[in-house]
Write a protein that binds this DNA or RNA. Structure first.
Lengths: 197, 197
DNA sequence: GTTAAACTAACGACCGTTCGGTAGGCTAAT
DNA sequence: ATTAGCCTACCGAACGGTCGTTAGTTTAAC
C-alpha cells in the first residue's frame, strides 16, 4: 500500500472515529491528507470502499490476533482468559478502528455488509466454542453460548469507547478487570431465573 | 402534544433506529408520516430539534423509571438487582429510542449534547452510588465505581441491540440472566490484577 | 515516452430549510 | 345570522449549499 493510500486511510479512521462516517466528507479526508478531494479517487473507488477497507482490515487483524493469542494456550479457563485478554488488548490498542467497526456498519453496501458480518460471526463463534467446551467440561456454567458470547464481547468492546490513552488505567489493568469479571461470571451459575423470582 | 407531532416523532424513532440519523432525511420522515416535508417544520424547529426531543424524553423517562423501581426497595443487593432489572426492562421495551440515545449523540448541537450528557451522567451516578454503598457495606467488591457502572450499563444496554421482540427469550428471562451475572460479578473479587500476573 | 499521482473544474443529485399561500374552523362584532 | 379576522395545520415550490463523483489536464519521476 502506497504512502498516500496509508495516509488517507489513517486520516479517515481518525475522522470517522471523531465525527462519524456520514458526517465526514471526502473534502475533510482530503484536506486532512494534504491533497485535493478528487485525488482520493485515485486510491479508493468510493467513500464506501474506503470504509470497507478500514472495516475489513480491522476484522482480519482482530481474528488473526485472537488466533495467535490462543495458539500456544492449553486448558479451558486459560484459553478463555487468553481470548478475553486478547480481545481487550486489541480493542484498546486500535481503539478508533474498532469503534468504527462497531458503529458504522450501516454505511456499507449490502454486499460489503454481508462480508463484514460474516467475519464478525466467525470471530464470535470462536468465543462460543470456548464457552461450549467449558460447559461441556463442567468448568463453566451451562448457559446460552450465543448470549454469553455477546455479553462478553460487548462488555470488552465497550471499553474502547471510554478508554483514554495515557489515562488513569493501563491497558493491562483494564484487561485484568474484565478477564476476572468474565471468568467469575462464567463459573458461577449466572444463567437461569432466580430462586425467588 | 398534538397527534401529528406524536406521529412524526414515532416515525422518526423508527427511521433513526433502522437507518441512522444522518442517513434519514426529512423527506423520509414526512412521507412516513403522510405529510409534506415542509409541514415537519410546523411541529419541530429543525431535524436536530426532533432528535433532541427524542433523546431528552427517553433519558427523562429512563431516569423516572429507575427511580420508581428503587422507590420501595430496601437492602443493598435488592436495590442493585432492582436497578439492573429496571434498566434492562426499559431498554428492551423501548429498544429503538434507547438504541438511538446510545448511538446518535453526535447528531446533537453542542448545547443539546451537554444537556443530554448531563442527564446520562446523573443516571450513571445512581448506579455508582449503589456500587459505593455496597462496597462500603462489604457486600460488593471494592472496585472502581465508575468503571463498574460503565460495565454494568453497557452490558445491559447492549441487550437492546440484539433483542428481538417475540424472539426466543422474554424480557424477564434476559433480565434474569443479566441480574445474576452482574450480582455475581460485583460480589466476587473481580477487580484488581491476578495473583499470577 | 510512459506512467503514477496529483490537480482544476464542474456535474447532477439531494439535503435541510424557508417562504408564501390556503383551507378550514373558531371567535367576536355587527 | 352573517361576516371579518385570526389561528392552526398543512402544502407546493424554491433556495442556497454541500455532497460524492467524474472528466480532462498537468506535473514529476524514471
Amino acid at each position: 500500500m502506497s504512502d498516500m493510500k496509508t495516509i488517507i486511510k489513517s486520516v479517515a479512521i481518525d475522522l470517522f472515529f471523531r465525527k462519524g462516517y456520514f458526517a465526514t466528507s471526502i473534502s475533510d479526508i482530503a484536506s486532512g491528507s494534504g491533497i485535493q478531494k478528487a485525488s482520493i479517487y485515485y486510491h479508493y473507488a468510493s467513500k464506501e470502499d474506503l470504509l470497507f477497507h478500514i472495516l475489513e482490515s480491522t476484522m482480519d487483524d482482530l481474528t488473526d490476533y485472537l488466533r495467535r493469542c490462543l495458539a500456544a494456550v492449553d486448558g479451558i479457563e486459560s484459553r478463555m482468559r487468553a481470548a478475553v485478554r486478547g480481545h481487550v488488548r486489541f480493542h484498546l490498542e486500535r481503539q478508533k478502528e474498532n469503534f468504527i467497526a462497531n458503529s458504522e456498519l450501516r454505511g456499507l453496501s449490502a454486499e460489503h455488509y454481508r462480508t463484514i458480518v460474516k467475519k464478525r460471526d466467525a470471530y464470535e463463534r470462536i468465543f462460543q466454542d470456548l464457552i461450549r467446551d467449558g460447559s461441556r467440561a463442567g468448568v463453566f456454567t451451562d448457559g446460552d453460548a450465543k448470549i454469553l458470547s455477546y455479553a462478553i464481547l460487548t462488555l470488552c468492546t465497550a471499553g474502547a469507547s471510554w478508554y483514554k490513552t495515557g489515562g488513569r488505567l493501563t491497558v493491562e489493568a483494564i484487561a485484568d478487570i474484565y478477564e476476572n469479571f468474565i471468568i467469575n461470571g462464567l463459573k458461577q451459575g449466572c444463567i437461569g431465573p432466580l430462586e425467588g423470582g
